[in-house]
């Protein structure tokens, strides 16, 4: 401990702070990537010069959407524009998310579109191609889609993916999800209450006490024509998980204490269970057996 303190004091004396050094390190990495990005894609040429945004300046670039990236612990964003006469501008944004888990997470924020074989998972919707690889989330966007622009976006994605050398792992919490009936494109990995509400509106208050230190996964299941939403949350410690469970029961499922699964007002079923640091909630299932089966299977997976 004394040694750590000594190093800290020396760095402070030299005018560095550990936080500043971390930020600089991320900036260095993204600048390194900037140096090797292609200057030409088809007939499109890179517009000087690249811009790099941090967690504060990102708002000046993408307005309120910046909060999504901050909610996934974004470190920096490199933006490059490619232009060509009489063609729409192609905008490349590379987000350094700090970890591959959060790069995957921000990728799952928008799962619409057609799969594209690029990076560790890619999707294409009209005018927008996104993929994740390692700790990077990459967005390639064109205001007005044309066939040549779409082709160039695909080519650019492949080049950028090849320049990112490291593969990354998906969040460990995904391993606890039952596989039968899991709709893989419905998976959302997140930390924040606001993002949970974005995908599945639960409550105006943060009744699950979600924050930067919690890992949550939301997913849809389809089994024998029945459907359910499942939420699994991992807390930093047992006490926080128990507290969240208590708050959930108090505000959302008070009947669960006596009835187990709860029949909601729209005829769907909800059920919840707590195991160590994990809180499981079947938010809405078409039937009681489906709610109870899913809950039981998750709790078994956590054993």
């Amino acid at each position: 401990m004394k040694k750590v303190l000594l190093i800290f004091l020396i760095l402070q004396t030299l005018g560095y702070s550990p936080l500043m050094m971390m930020q600089k390190s991320h900036a260095d990495e993204i600048e390194g990537l900037s140096a090797v990005l292609p200057s030409q894609i088809g007939v499109w040429t890179a517009v000087p010069k690249d811009r790099i945004y941090d967690t504060d300046t990102i708002f000046s670039y993408i307005d309120g959407a910046g909060e999504v990236y901050r909610a996934y612990n974004m470190r920096s964003c490199l933006s490059r524009r490619y232009s060509s006469p009489n063609s729409p501008i192609i905008v490349l944004d590379i987000f350094d998310m700090g970890t591959s888990e959060d790069a995957f997470g921000v990728f799952t924020h928008d799962q619409d579109g057609s799969p594209v074989d690029v990076g560790q998972g890619g999707l294409y919707r009209p005018g927008w191609l996104s993929f994740w690889k390692g700790k990077y989330f990459v967005s390639i966007y064109v205001e007005e889609e044309t066939a040549p622009a779409k082709k160039a976006m695909g080519e650019l994605a492949k080049v950028v993916a090849s320049l990112i050398k490291d593969q990354g792992s998906k969040p460990e919490i995904l391993l606890h999800l039952p596989q039968e009936g899991l709709q893989s494109r419905s998976i959302r990995y997140l930390h924040h209450h606001a993002l949970l509400n974005y995908h599945f509106y639960l409550a105006d208050g943060n009744i699950l006490n979600l924050d930067q230190h919690t890992d949550a996964v939301l997913a849809v299941y389809q089994r024998s024509g029945e459907r359910a939403h499942l939420l699994l949350v991992f807390y930093p410690n047992v006490d926080k998980a128990a507290e969240a469970h208590k708050t959930l029961l108090l505000h959302y499922l008070p009947e669960a204490k006596s009835t187990g699964a709860v029949l909601l007002e729209d005829g769907k079923w909800s059920a919840t269970g707590l195991k160590n640091k994990f809180l499981t909630v079947v938010l809405e299932a078409d039937s009681r057996p489906l709610a109870e089966d899913l809950l039981r299977e998750v709790l078994q997976n956590l054993s």
Binding site: I62, V91, S130, E143
Partner: peptide
């Protein structure tokens, strides 16, 4: 809206 820029003329 799609993506960080929440815009595509397709929509």
């Amino acid at each position: 809206g799609v993506g960080p820029h929440h815009f595509s003329s397709s929509y």
